[in-house]
């Protein structure tokens, strides 16, 4: 026991650094970790975009399939942003509130979140705030205040705009109150404004490029790849 204490003091004096044996293992681990990270880190040309909104109001053209999404699914879309070709991974998850755990599992690592409502249905607009909060809680991005959102007011084509209940002004007011979220009026059915919306989504997601460390460890990390410091205690 006495020996142990002496060794402990020695370690302490040497600036609490790891012992030699530890150091070696640490280095090997580090190399493996870097290799791992290179393999698994998303190339920055791949952007993860989450689409949220009350079910049924997100038109099929935004999502992968015509049938209701069960669980989660994504499609990829190539977008040219200035001189870069980026691949957008567009995620669609089941919209009902009872599928909350999906958010925790699938929102992590998102680069941009697109909130969609139906300009003809007030409730779908009222719920945008809930979706936004839900996203921030479940994805817990490292910079909550500056995480890029884009809002789409969809189905502007319906009934020549006569059945519209949410005005553009009202929607824009909400967007600016939430930190100037870019706003687009779209018709997925008529393919109106969809491309420019996705251009904007890609640009906003790319702005966050420096923010590389989005992954939250919610499972064991066996390979020794450490999570970013900030996410460990979430404070």
């Amino acid at each position: 026991m006495l020996g142990g204490r002496v060794r402990w003091l020695g370690i302490r004096r040497s600036g609490l650094s790891a012992s030699k044996a530890e150091g070696e293992t640490g280095a090997a681990d580090k190399q493996r970790a870097i290799k791992q990270a290179n393999m698994s880190a998303r190339k920055r040309t791949l952007l993860k975009v989450i689409i949220l909104g009350d079910s049924g109001y997100v038109n099929k053209k935004f999502s992968n399939q015509y049938k209701a999404t069960i669980g989660a699914d994504f499609l990829t879309k190539e977008v040219q942003v200035e001189d870069r070709l980026v691949t957008m991974q567009i995620w669609d998850t089941a919209g009902q509130e009872r599928f909350q755990s999906l958010g925790v599992a699938f929102y992590r690592g998102a680069d941009c979140c697109v909130l969609v409502y139906d300009v003809n249905v007030m409730k779908s607009f009222d719920n945008l705030e809930n979706w936004r909060e839900e996203f921030l809680i479940q994805a817990s991005p490292s910079d909550q205040d500056n995480f890029p959102f884009v809002v789409l007011g969809n189905k502007v084509d319906v009934d020549g705009g006569n059945s519209r209940v949410v005005s553009e002004k009202k929607a824009k007011a909400w967007c600016s109150s939430k930190g100037n979220i870019p706003y687009f009026e779209t018709s997925a059915k008529e393919d109106f404004n969809v491309d420019s919306a996705f251009q904007c989504i890609a640009k906003n997601a790319l702005k966050n490029e420096s923010d590389e460390e989005i992954y939250l460890p919610d499972t064991i990390d066996v390979a020794g790849v450490r999570p970013p410091k900030s996410s460990v205690c979430e404070c």
């Binding site: 790891a18 293992t25 640490g26 681990d29 064991i220 066996v222 020794g224």
Partner: peptide, 8 residues
């Protein structure tokens, strides 16, 4: 640090 003794 990347410590083989640590599991999260």
């Amino acid at each position: 640090e990347k410590d083989s003794r640590s599991i999260i």
